[in-house]
């Protein structure tokens, strides 16, 4: 079993990779998500963090 913080790190790396417009490793992402039921929640938490920051930064007045 993966240590929690290690899982958080791995999930975050997936979120970063998927965010790249050139990302094309969907089968590997599928396999990772299927490997353990905790992976999906960790991935979604990483994506939530990313979108939270995006929303805030996009509301920033342009200077």
């Amino acid at each position: 079993m993966t240590h929690r913080s290690e899982l958080t790190e791995i999930a975050q790396r997936w979120a970063i990779r998927v965010a790249d417009p050139a990302f094309d490793d969907w089968d590997a992402l599928t396999a990772w998500l299927e490997a353990d039921p905790t992976h999906l929640a960790a991935y979604e938490a990483a994506v939530d963090g990313e979108l939270w920051a995006d929303r805030a930064l996009r509301s920033e007045p342009k200077t």
């Binding site: 975050q12 979120a15 970063i16 990483a46 963090g49």
Partner: peptide, 12 residues
């Protein structure tokens, strides 16, 4: 990018 994501996740 990992540094930024990590820090922002902690902030959130």
């Amino acid at each position: 990018l990992q540094k930024a994501y990590r820090a922002l996740a902690e902030l959130k």
